[in-house]
Amino acid sequence: MFGRWTPQLLLLWDLIIVTVVATVAVQYRDYSAWDVVIGIAMAVALIARRHAPVRVFTVIAVLGAVQVVSASAVPAGYDVALLVAMLAVVTHSPGQRAVYLSGLVVAAGSVVASLVRIDAAWSGSVLDYPYLAEQAVILAAGGALWLIAYVLRTNRERGVVLAERAVAAERERDQLARLAAADERTFIARELHDVVAHSLAVMIAQADGARYVLDTDAERAREAMGTVAGTGREALDDMHRIVAVLRGTGGEENPEDRRRRGLGQLGTVVERARAAGLDVESRIDGDVERLSPAEELTVFRIAQESLTNALRHAGPGTRVAVGLAVESGRAVLEVRDDGTGAAPATTGGGNGLIGMRERVAVHGGELSAGPGPDGGWLVRAMIPVKEEP
């Protein structure tokens, strides 16, 4: 409740409490000067009860002890300051020990205040205790106030914990969203590179060949240009698919549809590479049905990128062997070229190799790329495959 109050309202409320306690203390001026001084001192101490609740309670408890010894009015109306200080401790004290001690001190103080009023005529029996009913009411009221304040404190602490958990959960959701977005961007970047690099490499090789034989062999030139057109259309379809994923307009398709490229399209890629001038041999051993769609896509893209690199860096006329073996617990892809072709002058940023390593790492596999033992270039990828039940 008080958490919704403005600082100005809280200050006004504190001043009202201080004024009331001080006013009550002044009413005891006919009893003794000690009553007025002690009551006003208790009132002034209450000003700091929100910022230093334990210290304020200690000061007021000490003043109460002085009251019992020196003042004439015991108990007095201004002793309500001790209850206010106790509530401040229960509500604002960071430690639990002070919360319980404050309640015990108030209870003990009320008992002492009644005992000092008993005269020698009391027999000592609890049933004959002259202030039994009064004492019971005071203890019950003080206990009820302490319990209410403790419940409010517990609810406030629980609210703080829940708020912190909500903030942490929101932060975790944001982090997961950022990770998902980063994963999606990485996937799209790899797809864009693989589609564009391979398609452009084939189109450039075919266009150069068509230009070379245009005047001497028109039929071969037409075939080359037909390959350029077909490759361009397929690349454009892939670009539309990737853009749809990027925009989130892929419709109700299965999420795996974006990975529909697989070993079924490997033959088309090999034929394109052959048409572009590479001497490609392809062999697949084992049951490829054991590969998941994501694993198929990874194998397909690595083979595609390796052929693209052979075409770009080794050049037409290069012999390339593509071999896939699906063995017990793993799939091994090897793409080896002899490096004897006439390679054109090319430059590259190495994004293809990075993309291949990222694809293999997703499946917990291994990839190596470098000079082969017999010359040329060798790309070898190993991807773990689930065992058949």
Rank of each mutant, 00 (worst) to 15 (best):
R178M: 08
A144V: 15
S125Y: 11
V160F: 13
I118T: 06
V106R: 02
A180Y: 01
R156C: 01
V161Y: 07
V160K: 14
V106W: 04
S70Y: 07
A177G: 05
V106Q: 06
Y100P: 00
A144S: 14
Q67T: 08
A71T: 02
N155Y: 09
A177T: 13
D79R: 10
V89L: 05
L83A: 12
D79S: 13
R178Q: 08
Q96D: 10
V111R: 00
D128S: 07
D79E: 13
L127E: 11
I148Q: 09
E170P: 04
A107L: 06
Y150S: 00
L127V: 12
D174A: 14
S102V: 09
L145S: 14
I138F: 00
G143R: 13
A166F: 09
G103A: 13
S110C: 06
Y150M: 07
A136V: 12
S93C: 05
G159Y: 00
L132R: 13
D128N: 09
V80W: 12
S102A: 15
T91H: 09
V68A: 00
A98Y: 04
G95A: 09
Q135W: 02
R97T: 05
A166H: 06
E157P: 01
R117N: 07
A73T: 08
A144G: 15
S114K: 08
A181L: 15
A88P: 10
G103E: 02
M86W: 03
H92K: 04
E172G: 05
A120Y: 00
Y129I: 05
A136S: 14
E157R: 15
A76S: 14
Q67A: 14
G109R: 01
I118D: 03
I138W: 00
L162K: 15
P94Q: 11
V99M: 04
V161I: 15
V68C: 11
V106M: 07
L83S: 11
G103C: 06
V105K: 06
A71K: 06
L104T: 04
L147R: 09
G143D: 09
T154P: 01
Q96P: 11
A108M: 04
A120C: 01
A121D: 03
G109Q: 01
A88S: 15
Q175P: 01
